[in-house]
C-alpha cells in the first residue's frame, strides 16, 4: 500500500478531481490511527480522542493521493506470499549493500555502468511497482523509469544487468501478485 502511494505520484494528477470514496478514507484513517497508537504508546482517553480526530481528518485529506487509481486488491494468500518473498529478499538487500561496498573500496573501482531496457510481462500495477522497488534494492541495479511493464534500469556492471534480464526476479513477483485470482 505504501509503495503505491509513493510511486503512483505522477498518476494522481488525473485523479485529483474525482471525489474521494468513503471506504478508502476509512481504510486510510484506520491505518493512520494504528500508526498513532504505536507512536503515542498511550491509552489515555485524551490521547485516544486526539488520535481519532487526527486520523479522521488525515484519512479524508489523504484519500485523494493515497489511492490515486483503483486500490490494489491483495488476497490473503498474496499477502502471505509477499511476506515470504520479503523474508528471502532481505538477504538480497544485504548482498546489494555488500556489493556496492566492495566496489567502492576497490582501488580500481570496477564498474562499467549502462542503462538497459527490461521488458516484463507483469500485468498488475502492484507487481510492477514491487518489481521496480525490488530492482532498486538488488545488487548493482536501480530503476530509473517505468512505462507499463517496461523498465529502464541503470546497472553498475554487466553481471548486474544479466541478473535482471534473466527474469528470475520477475518470475518471483509474478508468483506473488500475478496469481490466478488477480483482478
Amino acid at each position: 500500500m505504501t509503495a503505491t502511494r509513493t510511486t503512483a505520484g505522477p498518476a494522481s494528477h488525473g485523479a485529483r478531481g474525482s471525489r474521494p470514496r468513503m471506504p478508502h478514507a476509512l481504510a486510510a484513517g484506520v491505518t493512520i490511527f494504528a500508526f498513532w497508537l504505536v507512536i503515542s504508546a498511550s491509552l489515555e482517553p485524551g490521547d485516544l480522542l486526539l488520535g481519532v480526530v487526527l486520523s479522521a481528518v488525515l484519512g479524508v485529506w489523504s484519500v485523494q493521493f493515497l489511492w490515486a487509481g483503483a486500490a490494489p486488491r491483495v488476497s490473503l494468500r498474496q499477502l502471505f506470499a509477499l511476506l515470504r518473498y520479503l523474508a528471502g529478499f532481505s538477504v538480497t538487500v544485504f548482498r546489494s549493500a555488500v556489493h556496492v561496498a566492495r566496489v567502492v573500496v576497490d582501488p580500481r573501482l570496477p564498474i562499467s555502468p549502462r542503462l538497459i531496457t527490461c521488458r516484463t510481462g507483469l500485468r498488475r500495477e502492484i507487481s510492477r511497482i514491487a518489481f521496480a522497488q525490488s530492482v532498486s534494492l538488488t545488487p548493482g541495479t536501480l530503476t530509473v523509469d517505468m512505462d507499463g511493464g517496461t523498465f529502464l534500469v541503470h546497472c553498475l556492471d554487466e553481471q548486474s544487468a544479466a541478473r535482471i534480464l534473466s527474469g528470475e526476479l520477475e518470475r518471483q513477483l509474478a508468483r506473488v501478485f500475478d496469481g490466478e485470482d488477480d483482478t
Binding site: 538487500v93 546489494s96 549493500a97 556489493h99 556496492v100 561496498a101 566496489v103 567502492v104 573500496v105 573501482l109 564498474i111 555502468p113 532498486s136 534494492l137 545488487p139 548493482g140 536501480l142 530509473v144 541503470h154 553498475l156
Partner: peptide, 24 residues
C-alpha cells in the same frame, strides 16, 4: 561505505546506487 561511494563514484546515477543500498 556509502559515503565513500558518494565521493568515489563517477556520476550521479552510480552515486545514487551507493546512497540507496548502503544507507538502507
Amino acid at each position: 561505505a556509502g559515503t565513500l561511494g558518494l565521493l568515489r563514484l563517477p556520476d550521479f546515477y552510480s552515486r545514487v546506487h551507493a546512497a540507496t543500498k548502503c544507507d538502507t
